[in-house]
Measured scan of single mutants.
Amino acid sequence: MDETGKELVLALYDYQEKSPREVTMKKGDILTLLNSTNKDWWKVEVNDRQGFVPAAYVKKL
């Protein structure tokens, strides 16, 4: 969790967005987890953008 109590995830792999609903991340990025109710796609925030990334590409910290 960060200082505001939000849950964080670590990008395990690079991911290039394939639609406007997704976000690009690089391996090693720390992202804010917004929603993990879907087992396949998690909603995150990175670089002031919100979108989805494959759940298998990130790990909760």
Rank of each mutant, 00 (worst) to 15 (best):
N47Y: 13
D48V: 06
E17G: 15
E7L: 11
E22G: 13
K60S: 07
L12D: 02
G28R: 03
V44E: 00
R21K: 11
R49A: 06
Y13R: 15
V46R: 15
N47A: 12
N47D: 14
L8V: 08
E17H: 08
V53D: 01
M1S: 13
V46S: 15
L33G: 00
Y15V: 01
A55H: 03
T37K: 11
E22Q: 11
A55F: 03
D40M: 14
V23I: 15
L61V: 10
K59A: 11
Q16A: 12
V23H: 03
V9G: 12
V23T: 06
T37V: 09
E7P: 10
W42R: 01
A11I: 02
K39M: 10
T37L: 08
R21L: 13
L10W: 07
N38R: 08
K6S: 09
V9T: 02
L12V: 07
L34A: 03
V23Q: 03
Q16R: 11
D14L: 02
Y57A: 10
N38C: 09
M1H: 14
F52D: 04
K18Q: 14
Y15Q: 00
V53L: 02
W42I: 04
L8K: 12
T4S: 14
D29K: 03
W42T: 03
L8T: 08
D29Y: 06
M1Y: 14
V23R: 02
S19Q: 08
L61Q: 05
V44Y: 01
T32L: 14
T32K: 12
E3Q: 14
N35R: 07
E17Q: 13
D2N: 13
N35F: 06
N47V: 11
I30F: 06
A56I: 09
Y57S: 09
A11K: 01
G51N: 01
K26D: 03
D48N: 14
P20K: 09
K6A: 10
L31C: 10
G5R: 14
E7G: 10
Y57P: 01
S36H: 09
K6Y: 13
K26P: 00
T32D: 04
V58A: 03
D2E: 13
I30E: 03
P20A: 11
V9I: 07
L61H: 05
E22K: 04
L61Y: 08
V58Q: 00
R21T: 13
V9P: 00
V58R: 00
K39L: 09
G28W: 06
K43T: 07
N47F: 12
K27V: 07
Y13S: 08
N35A: 08
Q50F: 07
T4Q: 12
L33H: 00
A56S: 14
D40E: 12
K39E: 10
L34P: 01
W42K: 01
T32N: 07
K18R: 14
A56G: 10
S19E: 08
K6M: 10
N47L: 12
L12Q: 04
V53M: 01
D14Y: 04
W41H: 03
N47C: 13
L8A: 06
V23D: 00
S19L: 07
N35I: 07
T24M: 04
V44P: 00
L33S: 02
A55W: 02
E22D: 05
K27Q: 08
V23F: 13
V9M: 05
Y15N: 01
G5P: 15
Y57I: 06
V53E: 01
L34C: 06
D14Q: 04
R49T: 06
M25P: 01
L61P: 03
E45D: 06
K18C: 11
L33N: 00
V9N: 01
Y15R: 02
G28N: 06
G51I: 04
W41D: 01
E17Y: 05
W42C: 04
E3I: 14
M1C: 15
A56R: 15
V53K: 00
V58S: 01
T32I: 15
A11Q: 01
K27P: 02
L31D: 00
G51K: 02
E45P: 00
N35T: 07
R49F: 04
T32W: 14
N47K: 12
L33F: 03
Y57D: 02
L10M: 14
E45R: 10
L61C: 12
G28S: 03
D14K: 03
D29C: 07
F52Q: 03
L8M: 10
Q50I: 14
E45W: 07
Y15D: 00
V9C: 14
T37A: 12
E7Q: 15
K6N: 10
V9F: 06
K43L: 15
K18A: 10
E3R: 11
V53C: 03
M1I: 13
I30C: 06
V58G: 01
L8I: 08
D2T: 14
K18T: 11
V46A: 15
Q50A: 11
A11V: 09
R21S: 13
D40P: 02
D40R: 13
V23N: 03
D40T: 14
E45K: 10
D40Q: 13
A56M: 12
E17D: 05
N47T: 09
L31N: 01
K26A: 08
A55L: 02
D40L: 13
E3S: 13
R49S: 06
L34I: 14
D29V: 05
P20N: 10
E3L: 12
V53P: 00
Y57W: 06
F52V: 06
V46G: 14
E3C: 15
I30N: 02
V46H: 15
S19H: 11
W41A: 02
N35E: 13
S36E: 13
M25Y: 02
D29E: 11
D40I: 15
I30S: 03
F52G: 01
T37D: 15
D48K: 10
K26L: 08
Y13C: 14
T37C: 14
Q50M: 09
K39G: 09
E45M: 12
K18Y: 05
K59L: 13
L61E: 04
K59S: 09
T32P: 15
E7F: 11
E22W: 04
E22A: 06
E7K: 09
I30R: 05
K43N: 06
I30H: 04
W41Q: 02
G5M: 12
N47R: 13
N38M: 09
K60I: 12
K60M: 10
V23G: 02
L61K: 04
T4W: 12
G28T: 02
M1Q: 13
E3V: 14
K18M: 11
D29S: 07
F52E: 03
P54M: 03
L34M: 07
Q50R: 12
M1A: 13
L10P: 00
K27H: 06
E7D: 10
W42D: 00
M1L: 12
K6G: 10
